[in-house]
Design a protein around this nucleic acid. Structure first.
Lengths: 144, 144
DNA sequence: CCGGATCCGTTTCGATACTG
DNA sequence: CAGTATCGAAACGGATCCGG
């Protein structure tokens, strides 16, 4: 009866400190699922994030090591962001969120083929999306 | 070449409207993983949610159909909350969040046995935790 | 133009005190 | 015990300005 686990600690709180807001995961989705990389592209998402909020989130996500500034802006003025390994590891979490939303928050624009692929094999789908750098490419490879 | 998906819409935004804050998922964790059901038990969690925030979140989660008030408080003053089907479907998402945190947000108090079980078979772990009504019980059943 | 920074009115959060 | 009421602090978000 002398258990180790006297206090149940399966803390998601540390993750929520970083990700527990409306925008952070949205930026990661744009980066990981849609093939976005530029400040301008994030701004263009249908959720309409404000410029100051976006700048703040990019900064926080970079500070936390989820993303990195990659491209220089030699003369073209193009700054690009990429997801780190740590950031890419959010793919399964984001997919679960998509799946939950597709099931319980109708109406959904989530492609049925994607839902099907996820229900068939989550891990495989996550791997493929990661390797192909987005959902669009993954869906294309499913058969089109 | 006439694709259906002209605009990439894999919206997690609807989910984030409800869950994209620091506390909602924490309440769901208490409900789903730790065997909590009473207002007072949620308050007792180490993250120290404020009373008005808790009341607000419980209300929102109930309105969204993730939880239900169950017990009456005839004279005993005991109100209990339970997760609905929709709420229980968050288990995989919460597990992914735990796993991500365990990997990338050290130090973690997440039991290594749980991490191992999750990496072995996420779906099976999710099912077991759901059936047994918590992580404590699940860990106990793993061998102890 | 692009990637932000700054300003500012509005909304939301959250700690504490208080009530039925 | 299960919440409200209150009120200051923080976050939001729209508009605008700025350096490269």
């Amino acid at each position: 009866m002398t258990r180790i686990a006297k206090r149940s600690t399966c803390p998601i709180s540390s993750s929520l400190d970083l990700l527990g807001d409306k925008w952070s995961l949205l930026v990661m989705r744009d980066l990981l699922f849609r093939d976005k990389a530029h400040y301008r592209e994030f701004l263009a998402s249908e959720e309409r994030i404000a410029t100051n909020i976006l700048a703040d989130r990019l900064e926080r996500l970079e500070a936390a090591g989820l993303i990195e500034k990659s491209g220089e802006h030699p003369r073209s003025g193009k700054q690009t962001y990429v997801a780190t390994e740590k950031g890419q590891d959010l793919i399964p979490l984001l997919l679960e969120m998509m799946l939950w939303g597709a099931r319980h928050m109708p109406p959904t624009d989530t492609p049925p083929q994607l839902v099907a692929a996820l229900e068939r094999d989550r891990a495989a789908a996550a791997r493929a999306i990661r390797e192909q750098g987005g959902i669009e490419a993954f869906l294309g490879s499913l058969g089109g």
